[in-house]
Design a protein around this nucleic acid. Structure first.
Lengths: 206, 206
DNA sequence: TTAGAATCGTGAAATGTTACACAATTATAT
DNA sequence: ATATAATTGTGTAACATTTCACGATTCTAA
């Protein structure tokens, strides 16, 4: 049970977390089963049980899972029992959208700072946050001990900024820049390029 | 060779396309190899060759690939030799960001219309486009024969809007709403929830 | 003209992931 | 008290994906 957990399994846990939260908060359910959860997510019940079995035994035969207990366990596994400060790099339209998004705080993250290199944007107030100069990137990230960054800048400067973030101590980067980033092994990068996703679907369009 | 191509293979083609475009446009290269491409993407050369072999033989032994020819072939495979009109549903911050994003047009897509239900937003000009009332969704999509939609609305209305889009003829949906969507088999959905991605990475944070 | 290096495409092996199916347990109803 | 239905966790089988490794081809340089 202390073997390396497959990344594909880790990738599904947040989805379970999100759906379980919905079951509890929106529908007031107390218990659920791997069948019910799987049906709602389009995933087989066996897969859900197998995924969870990597971490322990959270259910009860005949009864299923107590939602709040399972939620607690999943948050614990994913290190979401604390709130992670996040640095947003880039104050363009997408940076704005992220800074105003209300969905972070209840799910384990908090936008702690926003950086931009454009003098016209520096000092601008974005939903309670002041846009800082990119020159303050290293000092602020070190001072606040920030580990997570979101990159919303053009591809041309994305690798440079990533290097600076990593040097400053960031170990998780969510990048919206349309470019592959090089990072050391201990740093995780997750990509979000809407065009890549649309192009994948285009294959299936007639 | 006419067996079903694995979806995971299709998923990598746009990434190859993007990197090859960069090699050609940014670095002025004419030829490349599976090794070079793989190194830049963090993918094994064998995987790239195997992926491409599903569709034909595009390289030359000893020489590698002619970039422009391979680009052409990939665009053809992914149905990107034409431009697809896209409907954006939701004119919030994220809808704005997408409507202003310059990265669609050269990669096969064009934002053709934006919808919102808020009377204060309807009529607003967004980068040349006028925000339309959500009541015009069906008629506009049918009229323009739109097959692709981007969902940037709250989870609470996402399933409803998806149903309406699918009824109107949309068969590819890129959803930013933090909820799992139900669609018929012939419809593709791709998800983008920044929090899900951050939560996945949080597992690896100490 | 020949040797050597680079590279592709691909069958087979290795590895990884998902689905099946069942013993064990729990709850419910009679 | 017992039968029935629901459900978990898991070993094993089935299936999917990746990697290996090699014959064939091409280019370059001596």
């Amino acid at each position: 049970m202390t073997t390396e957990i497959p990344e594909i399994v880790i990738g599904r846990l947040p989805v379970y977390l999100r759906e379980l939260t919905r079951l509890a908060e929106e529908e007031g359910k107390i218990n659920t089963s791997s069948h019910e959860l799987g049906k709602r997510l389009g995933i087989s019940s066996a897969q859900i049980r197998k995924d969870l079995s990597h971490f322990g035994e959270f259910g009860k035969q005949g009864t299923g899972y107590h939602i709040n207990y399972l939620l607690e366990q999943l948050r614990d596994i994913l290190h979401l029992t604390r709130e992670w400060d996040v640095a947003v790099v880039g104050a363009g339209f997408l940076g704005h959208a992220l800074a105003h998004y209300k969905g972070f705080s209840h799910r384990g993250f908090r936008i702690a700072c926003v950086f931009d290199s454009d003098p016209n944007k520096i000092g601008e107030i974005m939903d309670g946050l002041t846009v800082q100069s990119i020159t303050e990137l290293e000092s602020t990230i070190k001072e606040k001990n920030i580990k997570v960054a979101i990159l919303v800048i053009p591809a041309s400067v994305a690798q440079d900024m990533t290097d600076r973030l990593v040097d400053a101590g960031v170990t998780a980067v969510l990048s919206y820049a349309p470019i592959n980033l090089s990072v050391p092994d201990y740093v995780k990068v997750s990509y979000s390029d809407p065009v890549i996703q649309l192009q994948q679907m285009a294959y299936y369009l007639r």
